[in-house]
Amino acid sequence: MSDLLDPDLFGQASIAFDLDGTLVDTAPDLVRALNATIQPDGLTPVPVDDLRALVGRGAQALLERAYAQQGRVLSPDATPDLVARFIDIYQADIAAHSRVFPQVETTLARLQRAGATLSVCTNKPSVLSDLLIAEFKLTGYFARIIGPDRTTAKKPAADHVHTALGTGHRRAAMVGDSAPDVDAARAARVPSIVLSYGYSEAPAGSLGADRLLHDFGDIPGALADIWRA
């Protein structure tokens, strides 16, 4: 495979990427923080695979499922404090066991060299997104990192994708792993690519993306096919 991409095609393109489950496998650290949060309340640790599909839904969904699995109900009054504790634990060691998915950095570098504008479009709070991306030394690849607090409405709203993509591009796409990514791309009227290895609750192939891929490194070829069609 040639490392060179067509600058006429990619040089005026803007590509937004989801973060958790797309660029970085964050499930191990999120579930680690979850287990540390629930342990004082007498709950037993939850295996990563039990909650992997829920990672993209945020801290409260993870906590609610962990309590429900053990026959407990998460009190609405206790929820804000538990969520805050979870975030503090997670932020303190955000990349202890997380890893960048294979071919992510080499592919981002190829796209950037071809002139594409890259951004992150994530429902993860921006302070955590900035920290995580910096931990893996990926910040330099992205023109913008847009968490839900840096836009008017989070995914699946179109505004989130539009804010991440910016203006002045001739071609655009959204790359993610779950329904909010595909739905946001559809609302924004840009093509979407879904990666099968992510955190989708539904089978990735059922989400209705323009392309379903199994390897991050296949993204440039898929984008070229979409944009040339």
Rank of each mutant, 00 (worst) to 15 (best):
D77S: 12
A68S: 09
D183Q: 15
A184S: 12
Y199L: 07
H160M: 06
R211T: 02
L82P: 01
D25P: 04
I133V: 15
P180M: 09
L4W: 09
T107P: 05
V161G: 01
A68D: 10
V100T: 10
K154M: 15
A157R: 01
I219A: 00
A209L: 08
I87C: 09
A153Y: 01
T117N: 06
A78Q: 15
D177G: 06
W227R: 03
R228F: 12
A172T: 00
A59S: 11
S200Y: 09
V182S: 06
L131D: 14
I193Y: 02
L128C: 13
V73P: 00
V175P: 01
S178I: 07
F216M: 01
A157H: 13
G42I: 04
A96Y: 01
P80C: 11
F136E: 05
A172Q: 02
T106Q: 15
D77K: 06
G208C: 04
S200N: 14
C121M: 05
R57N: 15
P220A: 03
D18H: 08
P7A: 08
R170A: 12
L62A: 03
D49M: 05
S75A: 15
L51Q: 02
T79W: 00
S2M: 09
R144P: 03
T37A: 14
T79L: 05
G115T: 10
A184G: 12
L195A: 03
A157D: 15
T167E: 13
A95F: 08
A164Y: 00
F86Q: 01
T79I: 05
D93A: 14
